[in-house]
Design a binder for these strands. Structure first.
Lengths: 217, 217
DNA sequence: CTGAAATGTAATCAGCGATTACAAAATGCG
DNA sequence: CGCATTTTGTAATCGCTGATTACATTTCAG
């Protein structure tokens, strides 16, 4: 007698899961569910069990892919870093023909675009308490971006584009400004502002541009 | 026969607690133990039970003073805000005779002094996930400081001290810069820097001064 | 086809925040 | 002082969580 055969979906990601024993792509599904859950309930309310339930697997299943809850959230942060990197690459490619200071500006705007376009990812990556920043690739990749920014600022000085002051300090200041603006905005530190009905992203870019102008020759 | 009398310490805070049934000042002791525990084990490892154990009371005792764990940490944040306010008042008092821009600078330096002198408090107050920022006095007191900074910048412009640009934007930029620098430094974003053996506080003040100079007339 | 590896389930553990009933001490009032 | 009331801490307990283990199912290499 022939046994009923399940259609052996292998790595089919598209259609309805069909409730097989093996999920097929659980790791990625868990990451997406985590992000969605943070959106809905907030970062502190996210439990591994809730994520598992949303995906439709048993409470212990996620631990086959992530040894700890921290590892799960760190993986989300890694994805966040991927997207940031993509956004930065895109911004730099579009500004490839401009001078060093304008490329620094483009990189900053790429950062804002990413942070405001992926608020959950930005929140996770900037909340050290829930991820393993040092024990992952995050620190190295973060330092790499920082080095790129510092290099640009040095180039800008060498090209006579800066007014005065230490270029390394300018680079650090720009980075801190961008990080502070994004974080404060997401934390609701810009309630009404003074000008109303303004896109937060545009407003933040305006402030960043003012900074760029203040250091330009 | 005369009963042994416990010396009825009332509100003695000084000496060794002596293991009475009533602690005498449990609320404050819990707050201090929480800060100490965050120093030792990190913010995410702090549990109400651990705090209770460090103080030497039962696991349920803290809930007589703080309804939730969040309330406990929010109380720590309130203390942090008290200290920040003290530091700002001190800085402004010392700069009472200077112009608006220099008073803005003094306020910024007061913030840095506080953040670097009380890293745990700064960490708690800047980690929204663990405190109730909106449902406490923190939001109002935070907004008050922001309003003071914005007012100073407007005064600076009125006095012709600023080079150009929107003074509100300058105020926001300075605030974001200060917040970003403090946060990045505490998160270990300034590993070696380029100049070594430099006090982080002095370095950060240097960057802030560069910002002040860049907007000054 | 078959054994090994990968992946999910079920059951279970200790620790946590939080609640409740109870005990002890401090406090206010005659 | 004496005594009731309020405050403050204890003990026991609940549901939930992160994590581990033993076991079941599926996949896959040879």
């Amino acid at each position: 007698m022939s046994r009923a055969r399940i259609p052996s979906a292998k790595t089919s990601v598209g259609g309805p899961p069909g409730r097989r024993y093996h999920h097929g792509n659980l790791r990625q599904a868990l990451l997406e569910a985590t992000v969605r859950l943070i959106e809905i309930q907030g970062l502190d309310q996210v439990s591994v069990r809730a994520v598992a339930k949303m995906v439709g697997v048993s409470p212990g299943a996620p631990f086959r892919h992530f040894p700890t809850r921290t590892a799960l959230l760190t993986a989300v942060a890694e994805q966040a870093m991927d997207r940031l990197r993509d956004e930065i690459d895109k911004a730099l490619a579009a500004a490839a023909d401009e001078n060093a200071l304008m490329r620094y500006r483009a990189l900053g705007i790429g950062f804002f675009t990413w942070a405001f376009g992926n608020p959950v990812h930005f929140q996770v990556i900037s909340t050290r308490a829930v991820i393993d920043f040092e024990g992952s690739s995050l620190r190295a990749r973060n330092d790499e971006i920082r080095a790129v920014m510092a290099g640009m600022m040095r180039d800008a000085q060498a090209a006579g584009l800066l007014r005065r002051g230490d270029p390394v300090r300018h680079a650090v200041a720009g980075r801190a400004l961008a990080y502070g603006l994004a974080r404060m905005s997401i934390d609701g530190q810009f309630p009404s502002w003074d000008v109303e009905d303004l896109n937060p992203l545009q407003e933040v870019i305006g402030i960043f541009d003012q900074f760029i102008a203040s250091i330009a020759a």
